[in-house]
Write a protein that binds this DNA or RNA. Structure first.
Lengths: 117, 117
DNA sequence: CTGGATCCTTACCAAAAAGTGGGTACCTGA
DNA sequence: TCAGGTACCCACTTTTTGGTAAGGATCCAG
């Protein structure tokens, strides 16, 4: 549901990373560029369809860069733009908060906590 | 779409603040407790129904505290829990990122940028 | 009685997001 | 030909989130 006007920076940012998969994809790319297949394996539970759909959206938002290599088998590589890198940096405290409170969040929502690493 | 297992802290956090309204409500409460009506006026565009629905979810997630004052007219006050305070702190960098990139985000998504303050 | 204050619930619908299944393209090798 | 590799698209369905409208409760004042 797109607001007609953002009320603040947080409103805009939430719009960019909203949905189930975007933040996870962003994080999967933080260590470096990945091809479609590698990305899919990095993001547990995502379907190829959703992966490609969401990557296209992120590309349109210019937080992700998509590079096509003309070779066979086809090879497409996704990487963070500088904007995406800064977004990922901004997401670190949020990820930490989630980590710190993982067990409680998971319990309240009836979800398994993330494996410890 | 609830994951059966969180993959990391960020996954859990995104689950907690997901949707159009939660982050905005969290932010509205950062300066102090607010009654339902005041909250509704603080969060542009939200309907009473959505406000109450989302507040109930946030209460269940224990990021928001709901206090009923037995008086007339009825008065219910919402405030951040310590967990909610820390979540708000974790959202600051994300809000800053959104502010820094407001015009570009708004343009790409066909939304009006937030008024400058 | 009606109108006002406050807060909340329900029924139903709309819109958006996510998912499933089928298919396509480029090729190579057996 | 079939099987494998890679990446992607489309049609349709399901699920989730958000929205509208109507109703309710507690009271007080005119």
């Amino acid at each position: 549901m797109k607001p007609r006007q953002y009320s603040c920076g947080l409103d805009a940012a939430i719009d960019v990373i909203g949905g189930r998969w975007k933040a996870l994809i962003l994080w999967a790319l933080h260590a470096g560029p990945l091809r479609t297949g590698a990305l899919r394996r990095s993001v547990d539970g995502i379907s190829e369809k959703m992966l490609i759909q969401v990557l296209r959206e992120m590309e349109a938002d210019e937080i992700v860069h998509r590079e096509v290599f003309h070779e066979v088998p086809p090879r497409v590589e996704y990487s963070l733009t500088p904007l995406g890198v800064r977004l990922n940096e901004a997401l670190v405290p949020l990820g930490d908060w989630g980590e710190d409170n993982m067990r409680a969040i998971a319990r309240r929502r009836g979800v398994e906590p993330a494996p410890t690493h």
